[in-house]
């Protein structure tokens, strides 16, 4: 177990930096985690993060990268539903990095 301090409050994370309590999440925490991942959050980043949050709300899992890519393509258009675009935003993987910023658990099957 580890902790992060955001806005004077302390939040629990696991060893890899994923939030332990999903309900803790807010935009400040997302920005904080993004910074630790060397990511400057843009509207494009937020679009993916919000998509992930909605996906989790509906299905109770973080999607596998392949599934996320397809679902984003369906909702936001083919120019965004591809690996180049998503890895451009999240170089260490949209599943791993974006889920962490979105305050979700690691995707099932993601090592």
């Amino acid at each position: 177990m580890a902790n992060i301090d955001v806005g004077g409050k302390n939040y629990e994370t696991d060893e890899e930096g994923y939030l332990v309590n999903l309900t803790d999440w807010n935009a400040d925490i997302a920005n904080y985690i993004a910074k630790t991942e060397s990511i400057e959050m843009s509207d494009q980043h937020w679009e993916v993060i919000n998509f992930l949050r909605e996906y989790f709300e509906e299905y109770q899992i973080a999607p596998a990268v392949r599934v996320l890519t397809k679902a984003i393509g369906k909702k936001l258009g083919a120019e965004k539903g591809n690996s180049e675009y998503l890895y451009g935003l999240f170089p260490y993987g949209p599943g791993k990095q974006a889920c962490k910023i979105a305050g979700l658990p690691k995707p099932t099957g993601c090592v």
């Binding site: 509906e58 299905y59 109770q60 899992i61 999607p63 596998a64 599934v67 397809k70 679902a71």
Partner: peptide
Amino acid sequence: IKNFSPTYRALDGY
């Protein structure tokens, strides 16, 4: 206990 029943609806996407 976590309600995992919504996840069955994600299977189509997989």
